[in-house]
Amino acid sequence: MAALIPDVVEDALVIVEPPSRRRWPRLRVWRAVVLFIAGAYFLIPIYAGLRFSFENDAGHLSLYAVKAIPSEPGFSAAFWLSMRLAVVTLALTLVLMVPTSVYVHLKFPRLRRLLDFVTILPIVIPPIVLILGVLRAAPLWLRASPYLLSLVYVILSMPFVYRSLDAGLSAIDLKTLVEASRSLGGNWLNTLWRVVVPNLRSALLSATVLTLALVLGEFTMASLDLWTTLPVWIYQFQQVDAHVSTAVSMVSLVGTWLLITLIVSLDRSQSRRARRRTKNS
């Protein structure tokens, strides 16, 4: 009897037959109704906000509010303050969270639970309570600086950033990647920068987007710390001209969305290209 050598097995390990299910027309109608109601609830306020931004007091379509934004008193100061805070927050967050998450995933998987716990605390602790404590505990020189807000925003963004990094790290075979790089002579910094980070690109992107959105929209802490960031300015300016306030709010909203869409689609086309490349080779 000859031994049977399963030469072919490795060719056939992946099942590619698509799992398909029957579709019930009932389900489709039901889905359409749900999506319609959800669409209306989520889109009408956006439409209303946009409409209000492009209206003058008489209720006629007008670009005056949008045009007036840059020249309104205090706007550009508030805008640039928000931008600076966003950049500082983002840099701090990534420098703090990326090496830590990678290290824990790689060397101390048991610490993941601890990290899970710590990074969920900012959700448990309401921003309003946190800023209450921060304003009481922070030294005076720090309280005098707007960057105190950045330091706190890092804490606020931890849940989102850690969770997307954690998901990204779980999705790749980090251990093998790192061991491969190390065995090929890469040092830790090289490995982190050239092997881990590129493989975490989507996770990093979503962490970035979430952090930026958080900082640019944060109102509670900024208003209580008495810094006129963009959201605080919008709120205050409402008394002067609600159309302009709404216009700024909608522009910042649309801007954030465009940014997200842009980053996500860039990432997608890049990964698609990468996939095509691996397929060709």
């Binding site: 306020p45 956006i46 209000f52 929209g217 919008i234 609600a242 709404t246 909608m250 954030t256 996500v264």
Partner: peptide, 29 residues
């Protein structure tokens, strides 16, 4: 997925203005 990610972290001033424009006494809806 994208919209949920955006909207879930949405709140505060932008949301307030949108709803005032929608359901405020002179809102569109």
């Amino acid at each position: 997925a994208t919209a949920s990610g955006v909207l879930a972290n949405f709140g505060g001033i932008n949301l307030t203005f949108m709803f005032i424009a929608t359901l405020g006494s002179t809102g569109i809806l």
